[in-house]
Write a protein that binds this DNA or RNA. Structure first.
Length: 287
DNA sequence: CGGATTGTTCTTCC
DNA sequence: CGGAAGAACAATCC
């Protein structure tokens, strides 16, 4: 379940590997997720990767000298972007690679980019929820407009944060998951941030006090920045065969910890369903 | 085998 | 019309 920190981790790895490489050929294995093979080939062969941007959980690839050609990538639940160098070492990541799937390509591979230096970029997605789609400049702009400011931004404004949450009677958790308001938080980090701030996920957002709001605002940025530093995490066995595995899962305090003692008060971590989402919290120290 | 899983988008409703 | 709630959706695992 990649959220902002995992996508940022992938972006940073690709920054080092992909920029300046030229696409020699493309193999589309799931047209539904990426578009038609023919379309991909006619547009992409011979193009050289330029910038890789991330906004929220969305990746945006651009190409040298191409002002109207982009790839929009979203990993959703189970997507992976894996870079394989010419001797077969991989890096990148996302969802679990089981032993049977360690060979690339495998049954979950949806598109393959063969690059001019003999290296390969794979997009794998077990459940086919994600995508890697060609997009025009205006489509990219439209996609970007769906994302609010990011809590990991050093200039993220906690006063603005308070003003936004203050306006809504929604439970605070689903509000924080709304990418249009704040970009990047997903189910894991939102539960962790609420725990750190001592606020119940079900609390009406407009009942969060100014003091709590500041705590929560800082917690959202902190929890994601800490995770980025540790190479991200995924709840299941995140493995990155390049060796940079995500270690933040060891730092999780409530997510997936239902039935275990709260690390702060030794009460029992509880799991409920809130707006259809699994939600973890300590009923004792979150108010 | 039904329920759980998720981020996003579509539909419905007030 | 806008915001919010819920359903739908993608596919697979247990």
């Amino acid at each position: 379940m990649p959220e902002l920190p995992e996508v940022e981790t992938v972006k940073r790895q690709l920054d080092k590997k992909l920029i300046g490489k030229t696409i020699e050929s493309v193999e589309v294995l799931s047209e539904k997720q990426v578009g038609s093979d023919e379309f991909y080939e006619t547009r992409l062969i011979g193009k050289t990767f330029d910038l890789i941007e991330r906004i929220g959980k969305l990746l945006i690839f651009s190409f040298f000298g191409e002002a109207d050609l982009f790839i929009l990538g979203h990993l959703k639940m189970t997507g992976q972007i894996i870079y394989e160098d010419s001797i077969g070492t991989t890096s990148g990541g996302g969802h679990t690679l089981t032993e049977n799937d360690a060979e690339l390509p495998n049954r979950h591979t949806r598109i393959i980019f063969n690059l001019d230096d003999g290296t390969t970029l794979y997009f794998n997605d077990l459940r086919k929820f994600g995508y890697m789609k060609l997009a025009t400049k205006s489509e990219v702009a439209k996609a970007k407009s769906n994302y609010g400011p990011e809590p990991i931004d050093p200039n993220f404004d906690c006063e603005h944060f308070y003003q936004v949450i203050h306006k809504s009677a929604m439970p605070i958790k689903p509000l924080l998951l709304d990418q249009k308001r704040f970009a990047g938080l997903g189910n894991i980090y939102v539960d962790e941030a609420l725990f750190r701030a001592g606020v119940l996920p079900s609390r009406p957002a407009n009942k969060v006090t100014k003091v709590e709001s500041l705590k929560l605002c800082q917690a959202t940025g902190q929890v994601m920045r800490e995770s980025i530093e540790l190479g991200g995490t995924t709840f299941m066995n995140f493995t990155d065969t390049g060796g940079e595995s995500g270690n933040f899962k060891d730092k999780l305090q409530v997510f997936g910890k239902q039935g275990t003692p709260c690390p702060r008060c030794s009460g029992e971590i509880t799991k409920i369903k809130l707006r259809g989402r699994g939600t973890h919290f300590c009923p004792n120290c979150q108010k």
